[in-house]
Design a binder for these strands. Structure first.
Lengths: 293, 293
DNA sequence: GCATTTTATGAAACATTGTTTCATATACCT
DNA sequence: AGGTATATGAAACAATGTTTCATAAAATGC
């Protein structure tokens, strides 16, 4: 609906030379359309008002007025999502600035994660996990937190999972994985030597490997059979792998939800069964609301 | 800048009766301004074009044209953030639908977290943590993952932290906390009995308590001295406390960044010191890029 | 309480801006 | 070369926004 500028770019083959010229000018600075009258714009693009109207018609609008309405709308929307520019934290930032910048950085990271996600790859991953005898989870540091989160989620779906905290146990764990199983490796950098080691072992056993890592060439992405990408941007103060960690969790959410949705009724039933009863609780009725922890 | 409708509401005392009447109509359905010409709108509001122009002038615009531009802009912005409506996952959803819905749910949750965050409360919390002798972290289930994440972050800033996985250890941990320390309790529901128990113990010792919990009346929010709120919306398939968990992590990010920013140089130095050296690594040069895990 | 000033209001004149028409120029085809 | 199709901008036209102004109503002064 509101893709006037996109249409302007895409449908340029329908335009005459003059129209194309006008379109170029507009695409270069769309704000002109909002600020100028049709005659002004005609002058500015060395053409005529009628040519502009014809351009609008070819782009799918009844006239300049309608076109302008669409462009105004579009620019406003674009402005709204202009927070996309990564803003560094500076020394002079107020607490409110920090709140805004960090929140937006995380939001952008989620938007990027969404764009990086390939439904076909997800399909394969969901099937692999669904049919796996056992899910082997791997991660270290902040990525271990994400792996633990995945562990909790898969447990809720009655999937068999293994996770270990330290590297030595993870190596042993990797040795046990077989063809019928699936390994899920979470690594922000894609270079963690411990993870690479575990993956090599699993490859020897022909265990299919899903990696959740950043979208770049790295040992981890080379060793994995299926890749789910996290954002790769991190700012100076967040070298503790911050945005990527939220990105990882979102991917896990998506995997979990997709899995759960594959067998709707069965999941619902299973979910209610795994709702933990608190000590002293009779029948599942808890303090207002039903969630836990 | 773009608050035409707000001004219309606020400055109504400056208006005459006719103008107020027009303003009411516009506020009731602002889209009218975008769709109608000034004469049409005059007819629709049983007034005249000149009255509308006068209204625009009183609202701070040079005329109807400028006013309409502002309203169009404002409505577009408003529409952009309308994705706020929580969309449930349905059985017929494609994988792409799931990707979009989950991502957006998480984004909305971050937006809400930002809105719920009070800079004054954050100020107090940052000061408490900065001056604390020891930080005691508490959480269970998914909230324990968030607590572990906080632990990793605070460690990087050379803050003394304690965290324990099981409830019994957490109780012991709570007993050790004193006036000079700070307790950080993470609980999605705000009702987890184990957390409540820990908080009661800390209250006895007059340990200041920061709680990261959902914005509702709950035992946890009553027992805490300082509250940082997470989103409270969860959908059916996400009873594993999903969005709130991302919300929790964002709050931790903000706390961490704010803390780090308080002493810029010191943090930078500290950060580079805590960059872990990998086995076999000579001087910190790693595979392309500098991050870990 | 009446006269005067101020304020409020809409019709109409006016100015601006968008749309359509049409004559002309150019390219293309036969 | 002649004819047709297409492209283009000037100008007429239509619509839409702005200003003026006469009138009516309210407020103020005496």
């Amino acid at each position: 609906m509101s893709n006037a500028l996109l249409k302007l770019r895409e449908q340029s083959r329908l335009f005459s030379t003059t129209e194309r010229e006008i379109a170029m000018h507009i695409l270069e600075n769309p704000q002109l359309v909002v600020d100028m009258s049709i005659h002004e714009l005609a002058k500015h693009t060395f053409s005529s008002a009628s040519s502009i109207v014809r351009l609008c018609n070819h782009t799918g609008y009844s006239g300049y007025k309608e076109f302008r309405k669409a462009v105004t709308h579009e620019l406003a929307m674009r402005e709204q999502s202009k927070r996309t520019e990564q803003k560094e934290i500076t020394r002079s930032d107020s607490l409110q600035d920090i709140i805004d910048k960090i929140s937006y950085a995380n939001i952008v990271s989620l938007e990027e994660t969404r764009e990086l996600m390939d439904a076909a790859v997800l399909r394969t991953c969901v099937d692999l996990i669904k049919n796996a005898r056992m899910i082997y989870l791997f991660g270290l540091g902040a990525s271990l937190c994400a792996a633990r989160d995945a562990y909790l989620k898969f447990l809720r779906l009655n999937k068999l999972c293994v996770i270990n905290d330290d590297w030595h146990s993870q190596i042993l764990q990797a040795r046990n994985a077989g063809t019928q199983d699936v390994g899920i490796v979470i690594s922000y950098s894609g270079a963690t030597v411990e993870m690479v080691e575990c993956m090599k072992i699993m490859r020897e056993n022909n265990t299919p490997i899903i990696a959740i890592t950043r979208c770049e060439n790295s040992p981890v992405s080379e060793l994995a059979d299926h890749l789910l990408y996290t954002t790769s941007r991190e700012s100076i103060f967040r070298s503790g792998a911050t945005s990527s960690r939220i990105s990882q969790l979102c991917i896990i959410d998506i995997l979990y939800t997709a899995l759960a949705n594959e067998d709707y009724e069965a999941s619902l039933e299973q979910l209610s069964r795994t709702h933990i009863r608190k000590p002293g609780q009779i029948s599942g009725k808890m303090y207002k609301g039903s969630s836990q922890f």
